[in-house]
Amino acid sequence: MKKTLRIATRKSPLAMWQTEFVKAELEKAHPGLEVILLPMSTKGDKILDVPLAKIGGKGLFTKELEDRMMDGDADIAVHSMKDVPMELPEGFALGAILERHAPTDAFVSNQYDTFDALPQGAILGTSSLRRKAQLMAIRPDLDVRDLRGNVGTRLGKLDAGEYDAIILATAGLQRLGLDERIRHELSPEVCLPAVTQGTIGIEYFAKDTETLEIIQVLNHKETEIRTTAERAMNHHLEGGCQVPIGVFAELDGDDLKMRGLVGTLDGSEILTASIEGKAEQAQELGVDLAKKLLAQGAKAILDEVYANDAHNKG
């Protein structure tokens, strides 16, 4: 077995936390293994004044790490699964899906205790079209504005008074030891999470069986099943980088329950569907859930989002 393992990672504090976590878990599982981190800034980390969808989407956070692997500098890359495109480049594969952390969104404010307590016309910050669609459906009176940057940058903008409240991933705040900033978690009933939110994945070269043997010990079967189901739904919807799509799969023994959602950007129309089945049908259930949403008219909504995106890019 290899004596060293090199991990390509983004430099952001959250990405570094994830990679340090993976390093510690791997070294604990394999005494004598040395794990080396190779931090780098990706294009997605550098361009912070433009919405992600307009500069190439989620692949921005993964492609440059994959390039590092292709160059022979790194053996694996650690990703937040919600940044991982539905189709990996040829030759790459996911070797381990770690146990899911909190999948929810967190309400963060210095003035208001809850989302419901926000006054009419309050300024709410989020970088996510999914959050925007769902929260505007509940509160169309809010002024929802784009918010980019790492967690610290976003909190800084809130603290500077640019926003009355912001919405961030619960898991991100918890991982950075910022639990005290969370006023409350938005339940999936209020705001359905992003595909695989709160989940970390490890990417490797599909032919590298030696590396797979090392990283596989971190694979969490239940989370893998939920990840498979959620990604299958998104893939069948042809959900791109930044889309108003939410999904949440829950496993109870061998029973898998899923809820999915597609919304218009202004929240004026929200389509929802749910499905149940057995864990071994995770892939099929995800596809069937997507078909239910498509039958309700999801394609027209998503086409409009993409057309709007293309117009903005042009």
Results as ranks from 00 to 15, higher is better:
L265R: 08
K292T: 05
D143I: 09
P31G: 12
V195E: 10
A96E: 06
A160H: 13
R175D: 15
L52I: 07
P244C: 08
E20R: 12
S128W: 01
L271N: 03
G253C: 04
N234S: 13
M136Q: 15
I138L: 13
I138C: 00
A77M: 07
V190T: 12
A171V: 08
P31I: 11
T62F: 00
F205A: 03
A232V: 00
M70G: 10
L173K: 13
N308G: 02
K157H: 07
N150I: 10
T126R: 06
G277E: 00
T211F: 09
K43H: 12
V287A: 03
H311A: 15
F205E: 05
H311P: 00
E87R: 06
L168W: 00
I214H: 07
I245A: 07
K11L: 10
L26E: 04
Q296C: 02
G91A: 07
A249Q: 04
P244V: 13
E66Q: 13
M16H: 04
G263E: 02
L48M: 15
V144M: 12
S109A: 02
L256E: 04
K278D: 01
L178A: 12
R148L: 14
E269V: 03
I166L: 14
P188E: 10
L265E: 15
E34L: 11
A102G: 02
A77F: 08
S268K: 12
K58R: 11
E90I: 08
G149M: 06
V50P: 04
L168Q: 14
D113T: 08
T227P: 00
A122Q: 00
E27V: 11
L218T: 10
V22C: 07
G56F: 08
H101R: 15
G277A: 04
V195W: 07
K82T: 12
P39H: 01
T228L: 13
Y112T: 01
A282H: 09
A249K: 05
V247I: 15
N219H: 14
Y112H: 14
G253M: 01
G260H: 08
N312D: 14
A307G: 15
P85V: 08
E90F: 05
T126C: 06
G57V: 05
V35M: 09
R130S: 15
F92E: 04
E238W: 10
D309Y: 04
A290H: 06
G95V: 09
G161I: 09
T114C: 06
A29L: 06
T211K: 11
L302D: 02
E284M: 11
E276S: 11
F107P: 01
H311N: 11
L158I: 03
